[in-house]
Deep mutational scan, measured.
Amino acid sequence: DYYKILGIPSGANEDEIKKAYRKMALKYHPDKNKEPNAEEKFKEIAEAYDVLSDPKKRGLYD
């Protein structure tokens, strides 16, 4: 669930989505986080943001 990945409610607005994305992206960026699964988690976060930040894609997802 993209909302769960970003840690936001399904009714989140654009600003909340952007803030959550930035926070999670910094936390899991492969250059900052050396955990083995950090890169995979970072890709999931980027995919979630891509879908939820685009009103058309978000509409299809919801």
Results as ranks from 00 to 15, higher is better:
Tyr2Pro: 13
Tyr2Trp: 13
Tyr2Glu: 04
Tyr2Ser: 02
Tyr3Arg: 00
Tyr3Cys: 06
Tyr3Ala: 01
Lys4Pro: 00
Leu6Ala: 01
Leu6Trp: 00
Gly7Leu: 03
Gly7Val: 01
Ile8Asp: 00
Pro9Ile: 07
Pro9Tyr: 07
Gly11Ala: 07
Ala12Asp: 03
Ala12Trp: 00
Asn13Tyr: 03
Asn13His: 09
Asn13Leu: 04
Glu14Tyr: 12
Glu14Met: 10
Glu14Lys: 02
Asp15Pro: 04
Asp15Met: 04
Glu16Asp: 08
Lys18Met: 13
Lys18Cys: 09
Lys18Ser: 14
Lys19Glu: 13
Lys19Tyr: 11
Ala20Thr: 04
Ala20Asp: 01
Lys23Ala: 14
Lys23Cys: 15
Lys23Gly: 15
Lys23Glu: 15
Lys23Trp: 14
Met24Phe: 03
Ala25Glu: 14
Ala25Cys: 14
Leu26Trp: 07
Lys27Ile: 14
Lys27Phe: 13
Lys27Thr: 10
Tyr28Gly: 08
His29Ile: 11
Asp31Glu: 15
Asp31Val: 11
Lys32Arg: 11
Lys32Trp: 01
Lys32Ala: 04
Asn33Phe: 09
Asn33Ala: 14
Lys34Leu: 10
Lys34Ser: 13
Lys34Gly: 10
Lys34Asn: 15
Lys34Asp: 06
Pro36Tyr: 02
Pro36Arg: 07
Asn37His: 07
Asn37Lys: 12
Asn37Gly: 12
Ala38Ile: 10
Glu39Phe: 09
Glu39Gln: 13
Glu39Asp: 15
Glu40Pro: 10
Glu40Asp: 10
Glu40Val: 13
Lys41Phe: 08
Lys41His: 00
Lys41Thr: 09
Phe42Gly: 08
Lys43Arg: 14
Lys43Tyr: 07
Ile45Trp: 00
Ala46Arg: 11
Ala46Glu: 05
Ala46Asp: 06
Ala46Asn: 13
Glu47Leu: 06
Ala48His: 00
Ala48Met: 00
Tyr49Thr: 05
Asp50Leu: 05
Asp50Gln: 04
Val51Met: 05
Val51Cys: 12
Ser53His: 01
Ser53Gln: 03
Pro55His: 05
Pro55Asn: 15
Lys57Pro: 03
Leu60Lys: 12
Leu60Pro: 12
Tyr61Asp: 07
Asp62Glu: 05
Asp62Ser: 05
Asp62Trp: 10
